[in-house]
Design a protein around this nucleic acid. Structure first.
Lengths: 131, 131
DNA sequence: GTTCATGCAAATCGTTTGCACAATG
DNA sequence: CATTGTGCAAACGATTTGCATGAAC
């Protein structure tokens, strides 16, 4: 563990959650981590898995991937196009790609997969919020 | 409207939802669409907005953008890297970008914005599921 | 007149939180 | 021993769904 400023103590549960995430490529959900650890910690609670995942994200030790089902936004433009999400005002701004740009061309190991669509979301600070 | 196979009928509410989405760039949430239409349809229900949004997504007339807070997955690898999501088996596979590839370089109108991070998710069918 | 759309309220699902107790340093 | 971690259960917020009624065709 490598927490900054001693804000957090050591915990067996959190250590194991991190260990699992560092040793798998399956991008598990909170629930599947809970199931994996339930044998080892018979009275582990799902709430605690969530709590620890949030701490691990906060301390930069893991990454959260949002393919969320809730709090969706909707777009009348059905062509795949990137979005810019401002971390200050939370606005979502349409971006336009250069002609013929295909991000899949810059990915290794894409051969053999059928590419149907993509989403590209760029996070940062928009002009208005810059200062 | 342009529904396939006459599966859906015409509805004033759905037409207006589509119209709003085609005439705004603000990527509204279901709730904000509900608020916008509440004056026009005083007894509109939020549930119905959701129902119609799902129909519009299903028929390909609008796009759902997931920046969701729920159903997250977690990744022990904190470097920004693209993912491939298989629409058949729902697995999430790490992808590797070519050295030095920066998607922001291919976006128009990115000047003036502060880019901090990005997510690139490619959807399709993985090798195993191809058939 | 059969089927789809609607409003309403209850249900669902992923996630968060308050609380009393246990573990850490 | 002061503070953080835990399990439990209740709360939460976005979304979905069952049901009876109303609109479309």
């Amino acid at each position: 563990m490598n927490y900054e400023a001693g804000k957090y103590r050591k915990s067996r549960q959190r250590d194991r959650i991190l260990e699992i995430l560092q040793n798998t490529k399956s991008h598990p959900t909170a629930d599947s981590i809970y199931i994996m650890l339930k044998e080892e910690f018979p009275d582990l609670s799902l709430g605690n898995v969530y709590r620890n995942l949030n701490i691990l994200v906060e301390t930069g030790m893991i990454q959260r991937l949002d393919f969320g089902s809730t709090f969706n936004r909707f777009d009348g433009n059905c062509n795949p196009h990137p979005h810019f999400i401002c971390e200050r005002c939370n606005s979502v701004i349409d971006l336009e790609m250069d002609e013929g740009f295909d991000p899949a061309k810059f990915i290794k190991d894409i051969d053999g997969k059928v590419v149907k669509n993509f989403t590209l979301e760029i996070f940062g600070i928009c002009e208005k919020c810059k200062h």
